[in-house]
Computed example of a mutant assay.
Amino acid sequence: MANIELMKLYKKNKSKEIKDQLIIENIELVKIIAGRLYHSYNSNVEYDDIVSYGILGLIDAIDKFDPDKNVKFETYANFRIRGAIIDNLRNLDWVPRSTRQKYKKFEEAMSKLQGEYGFDIDDEILAKELGLSIEELNSFLSEVSIFSIISLDEKIAENSNFSIVSDDFDARPESNYIKNEDKEILKETIEKLPEREKKIIQLYYFSELTYKEISKILNVSESRVSQLHTKCIVKLKNSLKKIYT
């Protein structure tokens, strides 16, 4: 039975059996989202814990979803699952203070360089700004990548309930919609990224590939994909600051 029909039955009688069936039928979606986030956070948290947080989001989605609205349950559940995982990770405060401080330094450096060079900031320029060698920069980027994904997700969630994963903005089942002009700013920012960084954004957020899969397509290491992704995230976040500040 399709999710929408099950949802209508569940909303009608609140049957525990139907709710359990909905959880079982959508657990694979939780595992997919959990797997992608697990790799994004450099395995600093247990995969099973992330799945558990995702299941809480799925249950919340089942309870709050309105099947009479023109929204796919999978779209709504994706948003709730991802949000629950991020909220729980944020509450754990698992990112070391030193990493947060380094990320802040990195963010400030990138913001300055964006003002001078635009979006095409190579490693040599960034390393010089941070006072690091290329080898030290690679190590630095690998460390701050732990914090970069959750930092962007927090920025987006706090301000607009908008997810970069889906372009289905009009169907987003939340009370606060991102304005059309804001959406255009984000799209324009992605278009300004260097081709390889733009490709990473497309493959990671829209095609929903893992770092390993992207590394094979781009013929670079997984660590290099992570480093480039980290730079992309800060550029996008700096653009979002122009919207929300």
Rank of each mutant, 00 (worst) to 15 (best):
113 L>H: 00
88 N>E: 10
110 M>F: 02
62 I>D: 10
47 Y>D: 03
85 I>C: 00
49 D>T: 14
90 R>N: 10
74 E>H: 08
111 S>H: 11
57 G>W: 01
100 R>M: 12
57 G>M: 01
95 V>A: 05
114 Q>F: 00
81 I>M: 03
61 A>Y: 02
96 P>V: 01
46 E>R: 14
112 K>T: 14
97 R>P: 10
77 A>P: 13
107 E>P: 07
59 I>T: 12
81 I>Q: 03
73 F>Q: 08
112 K>I: 13
117 Y>S: 02
61 A>C: 06
60 D>L: 01
78 N>L: 08
83 G>C: 03
92 L>R: 12
76 Y>N: 09
52 S>W: 01
101 Q>W: 04
112 K>E: 15
71 V>D: 02
51 V>M: 06
96 P>R: 02
44 N>G: 11
96 P>A: 01
102 K>D: 12
112 K>N: 13
76 Y>D: 10
80 R>G: 01
78 N>M: 09
92 L>N: 08
60 D>G: 00
70 N>M: 09
86 I>N: 05
113 L>N: 01
59 I>P: 09
59 I>Y: 06
86 I>R: 03
51 V>L: 08
54 G>P: 11
113 L>K: 00
93 D>T: 05
45 V>R: 15
95 V>P: 09
95 V>Y: 04
78 N>C: 08
66 D>R: 05
84 A>V: 06
50 I>L: 01
92 L>H: 06
102 K>V: 03
112 K>Q: 13
98 S>N: 14
56 L>H: 12
71 V>Q: 04
97 R>L: 13
94 W>M: 12
61 A>I: 02
101 Q>E: 15
88 N>A: 06
89 L>I: 04
71 V>T: 13
61 A>M: 05
97 R>T: 14
61 A>N: 08
101 Q>H: 08
114 Q>G: 02
109 A>F: 03
107 E>H: 11
48 D>K: 15
102 K>H: 06
55 I>L: 09
73 F>T: 10
90 R>L: 08
66 D>P: 10
101 Q>C: 05
83 G>Y: 01
78 N>P: 05
81 I>D: 04
63 D>L: 04
55 I>K: 10
49 D>I: 11
115 G>K: 02
50 I>P: 03
